[in-house]
Nucleic acid binder design. Structure first.
Length: 490
RNA sequence: GGUCUCUUGGCCGAGUGGCUAGGCAGCGGUCUGCAAAACCGCGUACGGCGGUUCGAAUCCGCCAGAGACCUCCA
């Protein structure tokens, strides 16, 4: 199949045909979470978005090295380059070691990503595990002349850099505007300009997360870790860098400047950014206090949630919107997604039971190429899903004997659905347990429904309806079929 | 205040200079003892006002509203 996979590059602001640096191989770096709190719906968006990218690239035959970091130091809680480290702050509040905090929330993140069926990345480096590399990167930047030491801290010299190189390209802002608009913050006399950002920060005496360096006992600046770790594992030029749109400025802009200073050229070939999840039209963010944790979604334990939602509902919900669009959370939308997913998965089951005919009255090749065309168009998962729903009608019609399918087409259709729904979209069927207990229980329900069949045959509608209605009350869905019945526990 | 983006039918969400997705909800029909499920049909939406055009929801301008970034955030 000839694929022209196009991705939207934030840097050029247009869709570009994706061509890897090295044929057959892709280097992908995505900004992971800062682990100082529970994973929330906002974390799931980039995870699912870039999981889809990871899966699609692999499906296209690329060997992908996917690096997604864990930020466990350097991310400050307050205004730029001042204030407490996020991890250290949480550690102080909870009376734990910073690394205990890191472990607790890294575990929480992993647990939830697994539930969402987000594949683990190839490498998941931690900032604290790469202090040496970050110190080396600081040295390179100092050597380039685009950084200066001040009172034990090292700052990136944005104004000097901006004279020689474009600064602000990714976020589309001009240095002059930034200079006139930057808020004056206290305690920044160490910096030449408020635009400068720390790449190494001297630790205050009470600061517990600290490492020694030639400049001071301190810690690396937040932006630095991604530059140091991406270059270590993917080389100083690599294919795709992803993350949330809120990271474009200053984080990714700073990364561009750092790598240009350290390596003399741009590192990233394609910048991809997912949009935000909104709640009542406003961004869902930890700092805004409106982030709902993934645990809450799965348990239904939150005042804003009408019920619990399964990880697959959340995942499908995200895939029904394009990754570059904001997606507004609501119970109504989530429940619509839940039912839609159910319809889709039921069709996959139906597909398994379809018997082929001599000829097809339907066009599978066309359906297939439409699905791929949607994915090739900057991963337009909502369009691909729409086509899959068109296919659901086809599947159900065949099942109802209103259309027919040849055995070749049937295999093609099965493979298409398996590929898109399970391999690419990463959706999973609800597991039905088949141990000895459950087979006994299934036998009992079957027995009841057999009795109902007999009642029906005798036109004993009262008994028949009683069995069905009581089972319905218990949460079973009973359906009459051509040759008998079917049931499932809702 | 600066920069940028968005505004689609009851809800969610694609898309795009003419052929006007899809899901959920709703209505009508087929099937069924009745249901459920499924299938068929139905709603002609694109913030407002102008302009460009043979033709705009899609391009341009203005207005209104919302949001994002500018400070930590996925």
């Amino acid at each position: 199949m000839k694929n022209q996979f196009q991705v939207y590059n934030t840097l050029s602001r247009k869709k570009e045909v994706f061509k890897p640096l090295h044929p057959g191989k892709v280097g992908l770096y995505v900004c992971g979470p800062t682990v100082y709190g529970k994973a929330h719906l906002g974390h799931a968006r980039p995870a699912v978005t870039f999981d889809l990218l990871f899966r699609y690239l692999k499906h296209l035959g690329y060997k992908v090295r996917y690096v997604r970091n864990i930020t466990d130091v350097g991310h400050l809680a307050n205004d730029a380059d001042e204030g407490e480290d996020k991890i250290a702050k949480k550690a102080r509040l909870d009376e734990l070691e910073p690394m205990e905090i890191v472990q607790i929330y890294t575990n929480d993140y992993h647990k939830n990503m697994e539930k969402l069926n987000v594949l683990p990345p190839s490498i998941e480096p931690r900032a604290t595990g790469h202090i040496m590399e970050q110190i080396a990167t600081v040295e390179k930047i100092l050597d380039s002349g685009y950084a200066y030491e001040s009172n034990g801290s090292v700052y990136f010299d944005v104004e000097k850099y901006a004279k020689d190189h474009p600064y602000g390209q990714l976020s589309g802002r001009k240095i002059e505007d930034m200079q006139s608009n930057t808020r004056a913050l206290e305690g920044q006399d160490e910096k030449h300009s408020p635009l400068d950002f720390a790449i190494w920060k001297k630790a205050a005496p009470e600061h517990i997360m600290r490492w020694s360096s030639k400049w001071s006992d301190g810690f690396p600046g937040w932006h630095l870790e991604c530059t140091a770790m991406s270059s270590k594992y993917l080389g100083d030029t690599f294919d795709i860098h992803g993350g949330g749109m809120d990271l474009i400025f200053p984080h990714h802009e700073a990364e561009i400047a750092q790598s240009k200073a350290a390596f003399g050229h741009n590192s990233v070939r394609y910048w991809m950014h997912n949009n935000m999840i909104t709640l009542n039209g406003q961004k869902m963010g930890k700092s805004l206090g409106n982030a709902i944790s993934l645990d809450d979604f799965f348990d239904g334990n939150h005042p804003l949630l009408e019920k619990a939602y399964t990880p697959m509902t959340i995942r499908f919900f995200m895939l029904t919107a394009h990754y570059r669009s904001t997606l507004d959370f609501s119970n109504e939308a989530l429940q619509a997604a839940e039912k839609g997913l159910e319809r889709l998965l039921k069709a996959v089951e139906t597909l398994e039971q379809i018997q082929p005919d001599k000829q097809s009255t339907i066009n599978i090749t066309e359906l297939k190429s439409k699905c791929y065309a949607a994915m090739d168009d900057d991963m337009n998962s909502p369009i691909a899903i729409a086509h899959l729903f068109d296919g659901v009608k086809i599947i159900n019609s065949i099942s109802d004997k209103k259309a027919s399918i040849s055995s070749t087409d049937l295999e093609e259709l099965k493979s298409l659905y398996a590929t898109f729904i399970f391999d690419l979209f990463g959706l999973q069927k609800v597991e039905t347990k088949s141990d000895s207990n459950s087979s006994a229980y299934e036998g009992a329900i079957d027995l009841l429904l057999q009795l109902r069949m007999e009642a029906k045959a005798n036109k004993d509608w009262a008994t028949s309806d009683k069995i069905r209605d009581e089972l319905t009350k218990l949460g079973f869905e009973v359906k009459d079929t051509k040759d008998g019945f079917s049931w499932e526990l809702k």
